[in-house]
Design a protein around this nucleic acid. Structure first.
Lengths: 247, 247
DNA sequence: TCTGGCTATCTTGCATACAAGACAGGAAAG
DNA sequence: CTTTCCTGTCTTGTATGCAAGATAGCCAGA
């Protein structure tokens, strides 16, 4: 990484604890993150918690509602689309730019895919969620480019939040299959094909979302209030429903 | 973009002032950013300056040397390579994913290229630096994807810092020409070609760097210490003149 | 002159105190 | 019973104070 791991290990711990909690689907979108609670939880003062929150905010993981609190982001449908778009662009661009798949890289992906299969057989859904996201990070790691890895990690975290909001059912087998096919193309040295498959894979996952479902039941009401109570509007276009309320 | 612009306008101002200072090459890499000075400069307390610094740190713009101070990053040669690699991946991926160039988009790029030409004729190097980076951001804006725009803005800022460190001479005409050719391919609807040209363009710029020149004269010494001293340079090497001086 | 160490000063690191807005719950009025 | 308002409590926003490390410059000793 570009920064030294010199000091502030605690800060990084707060940040990373939250991010990895999201990556493994243990923290839901909209979860309230109280500065005081985190402070006592990590045995630090609010100052340091705040710094971690600020960092997470610039990473698009968390947002603050002024004087009300910090919340794990609940991406709107538009933001969800943007996240998938960004991932397609970056992951396809990355695969296209690859020239070789090293033996260690091949081995790492193979191990990973076996873990996916194991988790799938065990029905360990949380672990599966984590692994499904991690696959893409693993690919990024093959490039050795820390910048891209960081970007994709944050986008993956957001993707998982999106899944928790909009994904009706979890097509684990389909995703796993997609990963396997990408891997096969890479092994064959056909990175263009791998890129195409990656785009298709992300499309599939995105298609599996129900982006018409509002995470906030109030927004339905809200939008119907600003409309004539007739039977109009096949799709009422409400503003981004950014209300929080998770537990 | 992804965060609301709800409050903390001052914070954003500190952040954006620094970033735009970098984008227009008014702030050099290694510039010291004193919390106290910024605090008085922006008429706020250190607290808010610190928050801005934390944010800039996660964006890869600034780094902190513990108990010594905040500094605008001085990317190493390896980091410079990673930044260009990331830009190639993302920008090529972006162009490949484009399907149409709207009239407004075409117009915007045309206006931009004329500005480049004007600045080039006027020999306004600072403005030229800004415009040369901004071209790529403009392209990102065409996608309408705020995530990608943010990512590329930060990478562009880093690119400019890299240029200030390693670029021996400024091939403005060559860059401008590269931009024009990308634009032409886009106008022709050939986004695959535009992506290829974009990669070539970034390659050219990267090749124009002298990545063997160390920004830190001490590293020469450092490396020579672990090497047989063929020709010892008697330069005592004064520390980097990292004073802030923007105009 | 050169070297070594000490101290004064400047920097960030971190905690805490207080301000101020948001919200919930209850009391009072209708 | 319903509505309104008020107040207590909880939240973040911001400044400030103090601790501790880093640095520069001076002074003494060789």
């Amino acid at each position: 990484m570009q920064d030294s791991q010199t000091s502030e290990s605690t800060q990084k711990t707060i940040e990373e604890t939250i991010v990895s909690g999201i990556l493994s689907a243990k923290i839901r979108p909209g979860t309230r993150l109280s500065e005081n609670q985190l402070a006592t939880l990590f045995s630090v003062s609010r100052t340091r918690v705040r710094e971690a929150m600020m960092r997470l905010e610039t990473r698009g993981i968390v947002h603050v509602s002024p004087r009300r609190g910090w919340f794990v982001v609940e991406p709107s449908a538009e933001e969800a689309i943007a996240v998938y778009e960004a991932r397609r662009v970056i992951e396809a661009g990355l695969l296209r730019s690859m020239r070789v798949l090293t033996d260690e890289g091949s081995k790492a992906l193979d191990v990973h895919l076996n873990e996916e299969k194991t988790a799938m057989a065990a029905g360990d859904r949380q672990r599966l969620t984590y692994l499904m996201g991690d696959f893409h990070i693993r690919i990024a790691e093959l490039s050795g480019n820390a910048i891209i890895v960081d970007i994709l990690r944050d986008l993956t975290a957001r993707t998982i939040l999106i899944s928790m909001l909009y994904q009706s059912e979890f097509h684990a087998a389909q995703s796993h299959d997609g990963h396997c096919r990408i891997f096969e193309a890479m092994q064959a040295g056909d990175f263009v094909r791998a890129a195409e498959l990656s785009v298709e894979h992300l499309d599939e996952v995105e298609m599996g979302l129900d982006l018409t479902t509002r995470p906030d039941p109030l927004s339905e009401l809200r939008s119907s209030l600003s409309l004539p109570p007739k039977t109009v509007s096949p799709t009422p276009g409400p503003k981004k429903p950014q209300l929080q309320r998770s537990n």
